[in-house]
Simulated assay, not measured.
Amino acid sequence: MSKQKQHKNKPKSMIQRLITIVCLVIFIASAFYLVDALYDYYTNRQVLADIQDVYRESKEDEIEIGPTDSVATIRSSFRDILAINSDIVGWVTMDGTMVDYPILQAEDNAYYLQRNYKEEDSRAGSIFMDYRNDITQQDRNIILYGHNMKDGSMFGQMKRFLDEDFLQEHQHFYFDTLYGSYEVEIFSVYHTTTDFYYIETDFPNDESYRTFLDDIKKRSEVTTDIELNAEDQIITLSTCDYLLDPNEGRLVIHGKLVKQN
């Protein structure tokens, strides 16, 4: 090969090497990110499994003792997990999904966004109740938030309820607070954006609340036969979703609370 050809090929060779190096760096960075994410998922599941064991054992003891009639008395099933974190206000369980988690509540809606119940930094965060809600009161709309995690944890499997067949088999889930136990009847599931204010907790009168209930029921992308009136208390589950908007998109589930003995 002549020196002239070698000179012409040299820039091309350097570009090819540079491209190879860039691709290698991207591959290593992607692999590191994937391993880091998988480790976070694994750690999160282990941390949650620990408190699930404590709660299940305490709940079994509560069943043996029997329920309390006093609203002011914290249920025995929560005493052990409250010793772990006094910000725990309840527990949510949804059959057919991974949802079986403690509910946290702080003085704002940011604290548990990236923290687990141990108050450690966590990509998955926690399931947390809107800071405006008060579990000692009869708030008309109790709101729970959770991340839409890719491994299906937290509220990552809420989209399953958009399937009519799945919803028919799992139209009820369970919501426990420090003071009471509820079965939840799902009546609406839909995509929206933050432009629609579905997280209202305070309504000036029955008429405005009925209007709100009619609106959120009409938005449902699945059909339900749950009847609602102004005396009903509801719970709202909210998670991020990218169907309508990459930043402001949300997936929402609404359910009617039915108090259990």
Rank of each mutant, 00 (worst) to 15 (best):
K3C: 07
Q4P: 05
Q6I: 01
H7R: 14
N9W: 11
N9Y: 13
F27T: 10
A29D: 10
F32K: 00
Y33L: 14
L34S: 02
L38Q: 14
D40W: 15
I51V: 15
I51D: 02
I51Y: 08
Q52Y: 00
K59S: 03
I65T: 15
V71T: 06
S77G: 03
D80V: 06
L82F: 07
S86Q: 13
V92Y: 06
G96Q: 09
M98K: 15
D100C: 13
A110M: 07
Q114I: 05
R115V: 06
K118L: 08
K118T: 04
E119R: 06
R123D: 01
G125R: 06
M129N: 03
Y131F: 15
N133A: 07
I135F: 03
T136P: 01
Q137S: 02
N148K: 08
M154V: 02
F155H: 09
F155W: 04
G156C: 00
Q157P: 09
L162M: 05
F166H: 05
L167T: 10
D176H: 11
D176W: 08
G180L: 02
G180P: 00
Y182E: 08
Y197C: 02
I199G: 05
P204Q: 07
P204D: 12
S208C: 09
D214S: 15
K217F: 12
R219K: 13
I226C: 13
E227M: 12
E231N: 15
D232W: 07
Q233E: 15
I235G: 11
S238F: 11
C240L: 11
Y242M: 15
Y242N: 09
L244Q: 11
D245W: 13
E248V: 14
G249C: 10
R250P: 08
G255H: 04
G255D: 13
